[in-house]
Structures are given as structure tokens and as C-alpha cells.
């Protein structure tokens, strides 16, 4: 009865879904050919300039655009984009909710055990978003460690969260927020004194808002090399992707693309995934 009911309703629902047959029941890896035929589904964050989905449904931002350009060389198209939270990106990849994550996800040790990272495609910085004039004078991560009554807003599951925790910022000081804009609103609502996030996203968020400042990237924050993340079974895809990515990074197209979104195209030089995977956290 239980199984029957479940199976029956599953069948009823599958037939009523909009995109039948997406994601097969077997857990084996999809071949590159399958991706060529079916397209690829990408998870992004709503965090320009790294990644975002526009009002017309187009997936864009530096990370998805690099993904798109490289996949195009492999004959694969981005079929669908989903905005999700950082903490759900890797579990969703395992659950086959999407095939690749292109959200400027920073390469680090714990994540390297769960997903396959491409070679780094964006190397960038983090900073604090603070009320105008920086009343609490927050300039470095060490300030957060030294001053235990400082509250810092951070997105759960992000590299930033790991950096703060590892530096010794206590759990009680961290104010978790569920999406990038909520971090800013947490500071405005005085739930937090500062918001630790990527420099460029912060600048984009506060662009017209005079009540916020974005600090210089703290000197004590580590290098953040980001790449796109594939399922652990997609080794074939990863290999082909990296080959094309390395070629792509040498082109002027890559340089233009990075400049367009405000990133430094030089920063990525010499940074490797193998090295970044040693970053603890």
C-alpha cells in the first residue's frame, strides 16, 4: 500500500511535470555526449557580478559567462539556471538538482572532497560592508577576533563564513543571513555591525546607497580562487573542461570578460586548483 501509493502518485506527478525525464534514476555519470544533447543545468547565486539571473531569465555574471564560453567550445549549452543559496549548492549537486555550480564558489579543502573543481577562473577579494563612515572602525578580520561584541553578518556555507570561523570569530558573533541582500539589511537593521562578503558584490549591492561603505579588502584575508564545481562522477567532463578553460584563459576574450564584470584578469595567473584545495576550511 505504502509503496504502491508512492509509486502511483510519483507516476501521476511525473506525467504532470513540465520537463519530463530530466535526471535519470541511475546514478552513473552522464557522458559529454549526453550533456551535448540535453544541455547542462547550472546553479548560481544571486550575487552579481559573480553570478545572477536577469529578469529575462538569462544566466549571467563572470562565473556563468566563463562557463558558457568554455562549454560552447565543448559543444554544450547551458539549458537552465537556478538561483539557490550557497549552503545548498553542493548537496543539490549530489542530488542531481543541477549539474554544475557557477557562482564564484571558492575552492577549499572541505569542498574539494565533495565536488570536482575546475581550474580557478576568478581570483578576487573579500571586504566588509559597514555603515557609512565605518563607525566601529572594522578594517581586518583580526578586528573581529579582538572585539568580541562585534557582530558580523555572513552567508551560511560561504567561504567567508569559514574564514571568519577559522580566524577565531565566535559563533555568537556571526549573524547568518539567507541571501546577499539580507546581509546588507542586517547591517541597516543594526542586527550586525558589518557584513563580510566579496568586495565586488558588496560594491554592487551598495552602489546607490549612501548609508554604506565598503572597506578595502582586509590584509589578513586569504586569496580566494574560485572555479566551477562538477559532480564527483563527472571526471570526463572535468578533464575536457579544464583543457578548454586553460586555453580560454589565455585569450583576450577572457580578459575582456573579466574586465566587463570588474575583475582583475591578471589575478588568476599561477593559481591552481591543486594548491587551492589545500586551503583549510
Amino acid at each position: 500500500m505504502a509503496g504502491l501509493l508512492l509509486a502511483w502518485s510519483a507516476a501521476a506527478c511525473a506525467s504532470s511535470g513540465t520537463a519530463p525525464g530530466a535526471g535519470s534514476a541511475d546514478k552513473g555519470p552522464k557522458s559529454i555526449d549526453t550533456y551535448r544533447k540535453e544541455g547542462i543545468k547550472v546553479a548560481v547565486a544571486d550575487a552579481p557580478p559573480y553570478s545572477q539571473i536577469l529578469a529575462d531569465g538569462k544566466v549571467t555574471g563572470a562565473s556563468p559567462e566563463i562557463l558558457r564560453a568554455v562549454l560552447k567550445r565543448l559543444g554544450i549549452e547551458i539549458k537552465d539556471g537556478v538561483v539557490t543559496t550557497y549552503d545548498a549548492m553542493i548537496p543539490g549537486l549530489a542530488a542531481q538538482r543541477w549539474d554544475v555550480v557557477a557562482a564564484g564558489m571558492v575552492i577549499k579543502e572541505s569542498r574539494c572532497k565533495q565536488v570536482l573543481f575546475s581550474e580557478p577562473d576568478i581570483v578576487s577579494t573579500m571586504a566588509f560592508g559597514v555603515p557609512a563612515g565605518n563607525p566601529r572602525n572594522i578594517k581586518s578580520i583580526a578586528d573581529g577576533v579582538a572585539n568580541k561584541d562585534l557582530k558580523i553578518a555572513v552567508l551560511p556555507g560561504t567561504f567567508e563564513e569559514g574564514v571568519l570561523k577559522k580566524a577565531g570569530v565566535t559563533a555568537g558573533q556571526l549573524v547568518t543571513v539567507n541571501d546577499p541582500r539580507s546581509g546588507l539589511e542586517a547591517v541597516k537593521a543594526k542586527r550586525a555591525d558589518a557584513y563580510f562578503y566579496t568586495t565586488l558584490s558588496l560594491r554592487q549591492l551598495v552602489k546607490d546607497d549612501k548609508s554604506f561603505d565598503v572597506t578595502e579588502p582586509p590584509k589578513d584575508s586569504p586569496v580566494t580562487g574560485a572555479g566551477v564545481a562538477f559532480r564527483t562522477t563527472d571526471t570526463e567532463l572535468l578533464k575536457a573542461y579544464n583543457e578548454e578553460l586553460n586555453k580560454f584563459k589565455a585569450t583576450t576574450e577572457y580578459v575582456e570578460l573579466m574586465k566587463k564584470f570588474g575583475f582583475d584578469p591578471e589575478a588568476v595567473k599561477g593559481v591552481t586548483t591543486a594548491e587551492m584545495c589545500k586551503t583549510a576550511g
Binding site: Y86, D87, I90, P91, R111, Q114, P156, G157
Partner: peptide, 8 residues
């Protein structure tokens, strides 16, 4: 969700 996110 928090422990799930930390451990993936």
C-alpha cells in the same frame, strides 16, 4: 540545514 551545509 546548518550541519548539512557544513558537511555537504
Amino acid at each position: 540545514m546548518k550541519v548539512g551545509g557544513n558537511s555537504f
